[in-house]
């Protein structure tokens, strides 16, 4: 569906994108993961034809974005980091304008718009001014805009940034819905978000691909070197000794101690694939140390 080979984008002496290559299969949801400034937005801008790469090729549905830009752009719906909204128009006016811009035939436009409006749940704000909408609604209008013309590919740049948790959940739900019949590239700097919606993930850092993997493999790898937080009552020394005897635990650090309540970090190197958490629990109960808190530490790339 999308083939990216050796993409480079140079700004002055700095390479914002430095030799990125990956492919996206039809029907796939690809997460684009990386810290801020890693080159996610630049890559997306190149894929959508906003910027031209210094070198390398992007092929969308077999059309090179530089050689057949119109054909390639027809297949893509794009939500940039800053949703491109005209604040002086109502939602419906704006979406109609986008229909004109994407050369959607007049026949059936109304039905299509009605479908999109209900899909992204903005029916009740259809006649309101875009400038008067809340951030969450603006983001939805942005997504609605990307959906116009029924493109096969959706490219969403940080679709949940700046939204409150409720809105984030709703947008994620919406994306999962869209994934049923779209190929989606989604960028984010939050691992959990990518985990929540994506099939595969490309991690980039400093303009380079750091890893490409499926979500399940990635989770394994991540849990393979994950950290657990354990808070308990009892002697730190005893607990350390008991736990270090267990297989798959590579390190224990003391975090906080408050009289007889202690918190420790446990670094897990689980090569065998079995869950070390069960054995920790039994070890703790055997020693008679009550567990006050026991959770895995979140992974983000920040």
């Amino acid at each position: 569906m999308i083939e990216i080979t050796n993409l480079v984008k140079r700004y002055g002496d700095k390479k914002a994108v430095n030799g990125i290559s990956f492919t996206v299969q039809k029907g796939e949801v690809l997460g684009f993961l990386g810290p801020n400034g890693a080159g996610k937005s630049t890559t997306m801008n190149i894929i959508t034809g906003y910027l031209s790469s210094t070198s390398g090729t992007v092929k969308v549905n077999g059309h090179d974005i530089l050689e057949e830009p119109e054909e390639a752009k027809k297949c893509i719906g794009y939500l940039p980091e800053l949703p491109p909204l005209y604040l002086d128009m109502t939602v419906l006016e704006y979406l109609n304008f986008m229909c004109d811009l994407k050369k959607v035939p007049r026949a059936g436009r109304k039905e299509m718009l009605a479908k999109i409006l209900s899909m992204v749940k903005i029916v009740d704000v259809a006649d309101r001014l875009v400038g008067n909408l809340s951030k969450g609604y603006k983001q939805r209008v942005g997504i609605a805009q990307a959906l116009i013309g029924d493109p096969e590919i959706l490219i969403l740049d940080e679709p949940t940034v700046g939204l409150d948790p409720n809105q984030i959940l709703e947008i994620r739900k919406l994306i999962r819905n869209l994934a049923k019949d779209h190929t989606i590239i989604l960028s984010s700097h939050i691992l959990s978000e990518v985990q929540a919606v994506c099939d595969r993930v490309v991690i980039i850092n400093h303009g380079k691909v750091a890893a490409i993997d499926t979500i399940t493999d990635l989770s394994k790898k991540l849990s393979g070197s994950s950290k657990l937080l354990l808070s308990f009552k009892g002697s730190v020394k005893d607990v350390k000794n008991a736990l270090q005897a267990l297989p798959g635990i590579s390190g224990i650090n003391e975090r906080v101690s408050d009289s007889d309540i202690h918190e420790i970090d446990i670094t897990v190197s689980n090569e065998k694939g079995s869950d070390v958490r069960t054995s920790i629990f039994y070890a703790m109960s055997k020693g008679g140390w009550p567990i006050l808190e026991f959770r895995s530490l979140d992974h983000t790339l920040e």
Partner: peptide
């Protein structure tokens, strides 16, 4: 200023 110019680049029109 508003970032809407991106529409002209990423949509199928010259």
């Amino acid at each position: 200023k508003r970032g809407t110019e991106i529409l002209f680049y990423t949509n199928p029109l010259s």
